[in-house]
Design a protein around this nucleic acid. Structure first.
Lengths: 120, 120
DNA sequence: TCCATATTTCGACAATAATCGAAATATTAA
DNA sequence: TTAATATTTCGATTATTGTCGAAATATGGA
């Protein structure tokens, strides 16, 4: 993942309503939820939710599919995984293998991090 | 971490210059870098960099310390770790233990994710 | 003390983001 | 086909963000 993609993805999550939407979809799993159910769950006006879903889609964080008159949104777990990988790849002087929480069991983290469980 | 803190932290990283600053500091490790060295490394005007460092500080992502006439900034690995924990905690129907890349070796991820390596 | 260097604050500006009512579009059910 | 429901687009408004030159503040060295 390039830095511009990371910025886009982070920006999509850097908004309270959108982060709540995304977390709701993460919990819902691959089956996803319709726009209406998300709106109900979070108490957001339909037009506002639609705006935010478009942002999340633009960032690649959700995958919409038409199902009858509903549009079902599901979290894009692959995209989220790619972001987490990007955020940890330059950790600890380039040795991402030693970084918690990605690899909390190794003790390589102590080579560069204040504590094994406090590294990116 | 609460959702508001996560939003603040994500927003701090959701900007190309700031993300570059943070990554530079992550690579630099706990010793950190002075504001001037960061400015040189990234080619950012001092006033602009100062603005962004303040944002990163407000979000808890960097820790500044005075060293003579320099101000040294270091990445706050603990804060970053807390954010990553927050982002993965509700993964896979609440079973964060099964999620890659946090725990790529287990195969619990297949229970809920499209693929073991594509889960948040 | 006085000057040079490092960093931050201030002020102004242009650009972008978030909200929501109303209207438009799409799909199903009667 | 007509009505009902689901979702998106549009338009307007308000608030926030990113940038940078110039000035202010802080520290160290001559």
């Amino acid at each position: 993942m390039e830095i511009k993609d990371a910025v886009t993805t982070l920006a999509a999550m850097a908004q309270e309503t959108r982060l709540a939407v995304f977390r709701t979809l993460v919990v819902a799993g691959p089956d996803g939820l319709s726009a209406g159910r998300i709106a109900d769950a979070l108490g957001v006006a339909p037009a506002t939710l639609s705006f935010h879903l478009k942002e999340l889609d633009r960032a690649g964080l959700v995958i919409p599919r038409q199902d009858g008159r509903y549009v079902i949104y599901a979290a894009n777990f692959a995209r989220m995984g790619a972001l987490l990988a990007f955020l940890t790849e330059n950790c600890c002087r380039g040795d991402s293998a030693g970084c918690a929480p990605a690899n909390a069991d190794t003790d390589a983290a102590v080579d560069c991090c204040p504590a094994p469980d406090s590294c990116c």
